[in-house]
């Protein structure tokens, strides 16, 4: 039996909204570490890894490890039936081919029940090596989203260049080019607007900006984002969900041909 009651139901709604354009389906692993999803996009360019820890839920019950094959589109459709302040409970029997979802209003005066048919999904779990990154940037997630949105107008690629000058985002296309330079700044009115750069060594990588923009749809979940860059390895973009979990995105860089 798996049962998990999430007081902040909006977290699950935003989480599914954030990833459903990147991955259409995936196996949600339920075990003593919490509720986790690891899935690649169909082009094998981007990977989503998310975790909601057991303490995100009250209660969290998982009698044995389970893997729930879920269509993110279908789950998103059902979650749209929940209000933002609803408490969401997920429930599945050990051998079930369905996931039951209960949406409960804060005063328990409205209770809705939905059932999602599960899928058999053949997916491999990938090992992600621990990496010591050349440059790590902590910044406002809204600012990151803005930069992606602006530069996407110019090109389908964005080059991120970390040097002692700061972090430069550049896009060059047919109409011209654009660049945004971010410098370390901790002297800000709101802590979430600070830009903190931890640079071991300079690094320059180019990425498909459409993926960066899709990752940036996670902005409503977290006002901070961390970018981790190393030469010739995938970008790691991390959004922490309060103290209860995270969404991490990995993106393969473009390579000179």
């Amino acid at each position: 039996m798996f049962e998990a009651r999430l007081n902040q139901g909006a977290v699950l709604k935003k989480l599914v909204d954030a990833v459903r354009d990147i991955v259409s389906e995936g196996n949600f692993d339920c075990n003593e570490n919490g509720l986790a999803l690891q899935a690649m996009d169909s082009a094998h360019v981007a990977l989503v890894a998310m975790l909601l820890r057991p303490d995100a839920f009250e209660p969290y019950r998982c009698d044995r490890n389970m893997s729930l094959g879920i269509s993110l589109k279908s789950l998103g459709t059902i979650l749209r039936c929940a209000s933002n302040d609803d408490i969401i409970t997920l429930r599945a029997e050990d051998t079930a081919d369905q996931l039951a979802l209960t949406f409960e209003s804060p005063q328990s005066d409205k209770v809705s029940e939905y059932v999602l048919n599960l899928m058999d999904i053949d997916s491999e779990h990938l090992g992600i090596p621990d990496t010591s990154y050349d440059t790590v940037i902590h910044m406002s997630s809204a600012e990151f989203q803005r930069i992606c949105r602006d530069l996407q107008q110019l090109s389908d690629s964005v080059t991120i260049d970390a040097s002692k000058e700061g972090i430069k985002f550049t896009a060059t296309g047919q109409l011209g080019s654009g660049q945004v330079m971010l410098r370390q700044n901790m002297n800000v009115d709101r802590e979430e607007d600070a830009t903190v750069i931890e640079m071991q060594q300079p690094v320059q990588l180019t990425f498909a900006v459409k993926y960066l923009s899709m990752f940036a749809k996670t902005t409503p979940l977290c006002n901070r984002v961390t970018l981790c860059l190393s030469k010739d390895v995938p970008l790691l973009l991390e959004y922490k969900i309060d103290e209860i979990g995270y969404i991490r995105y990995y993106l393969a860089p473009k390579v000179d041909s």
Partner: peptide, 14 residues
Amino acid sequence: ASTQGRLDSFFKPS
């Protein structure tokens, strides 16, 4: 010119 890399060359099935 650049081509899009794939994650398969970085992450292996565990």
